[in-house]
Design a protein around this nucleic acid. Structure first.
Lengths: 194, 194
DNA sequence: ACCGAAAGCTGAACTGAGTACAAGTTCTTA
DNA sequence: TAAGAACTTGTACTCAGTTCAGCTTTCGGT
């Protein structure tokens, strides 16, 4: 990793952590991009060269987390023998683990500024496409509809777990919630389960 | 309905249809709120008194549709004897019928301006809360998790149908897709269905 | 039909997000 | 170490969204 790349990641992280600090102190609306840039020691222009919008700085994933996530997917692609939904469940458990630091922050930001709920959803867009492709590869029949349905439903189940989870509770509770939600969604919601 | 209310609805519709026309002509980004207001014969300020944002004008539902939707829910609340998931499926079929004019427009707008995908999701927020409450009422046990899961999953299935549907195809195809998606999601996705 | 109150409309002036660009600085590589 | 690519910065701009004071229209009671 050359000097240039290292500096870039460092700048990214400085800007992001500064932003999160200010936002959690004053609230999202009360912090301007100007403020963040100044506090992080870069220009407004530079801020926008790192993040496409003010919202992005609050919701984008760390590049390294993203890389870890891709690795996770590639490692898992080999054992085609496991049932899809089982593998999917484990995958989401891993995602939850990966995002364990991240989720409480997100939830706090969204809680005090509900208008950001949409952007929060959008934050999944950075890792979701890979997952979708992964599902498509695993579903032998080349069924567009089924791929989309499995993907969207599994994601909805995951989001439900995140939504219901109380950040004050332990990480294990979240992981258990994720497993429960995916089990229910996989087993069928038409008939009540115990 | 007094004169005041009638005028208001009329203005709402004028602004909205003007906006949609301009947007479909020039694309979302190439139309300013100024343009829309001018073309609709109101001031910029008035525009923002009707719609909270430029995006909202492209995605908010017609007040009358919303009212019809609420009626639909109330009518359906009586027959508690039908299985929940069946009632839910019919409900979404009705929603699809209600939005049949609307969906193709949405899809076109989003297609030529992908950044709006999040806002498009948000458009469900106007009718979703009612649905969620409805589900909560139907689930006898007062289970927060289960309510959220059923709601999110059903919505995801519905969105999948919309996503896969080609607006050039007939409305019946959409309705059939909605039924298929909800059936699959309800029956359980863990095991492949024919 | 009239009047006071309430609701709606408007223009002006403001803040802040996001973009474009030209000029300067720092890293890379040959 | 020199040429060039990549990064940073200030400036100047457009446009979304808010606030507010003053005007017009509608409403309800008389």
């Amino acid at each position: 990793m050359g000097l240039r790349e290292r500096k870039k990641l460092a700048a990214w992280r400085t800007i992001r952590s500064t932003a999160l600090r200010l936002i959690s102190e004053r609230g999202f609306d009360a912090v301007s991009v100007e403020d963040i840039a100044a506090e992080a020691g870069v220009s407004r222009t530079t801020f926008f060269s790192y993040f496409p919008s003010k919202e992005a700085v609050a919701f984008e994933f760390d590049p390294l987390d993203l890389q870890r996530w891709r690795t996770l997917l590639e490692d898992d692609v080999d054992d085609d023998d496991r049932p899809l939904w089982e593998a999917l469940t484990d995958l989401f458990v891993d995602v939850a683990r990966l995002l364990s630091e991240w989720l409480p922050v997100q939830k706090r930001v969204v809680a005090d500024c509900p208008g950001l709920a949409n952007s929060a959803r959008g934050s999944c867009d950075s890792f979701a496409p890979d997952l979708r492709a992964w599902i498509g590869r695993r579903l032998t029949d080349d069924d567009e509809l089924r791929t989309a349905l499995v993907f969207n439903t599994a994601l909805a189940a995951f989001m439900t777990a995140v939504e219901v989870w109380d950040p004050d509770d332990s990480l294990d509770e979240l992981l258990e919630l994720v497993r429960t939600c995916l089990r229910w969604a996989g087993a069928g919601l038409a008939h009540p389960v115990s």
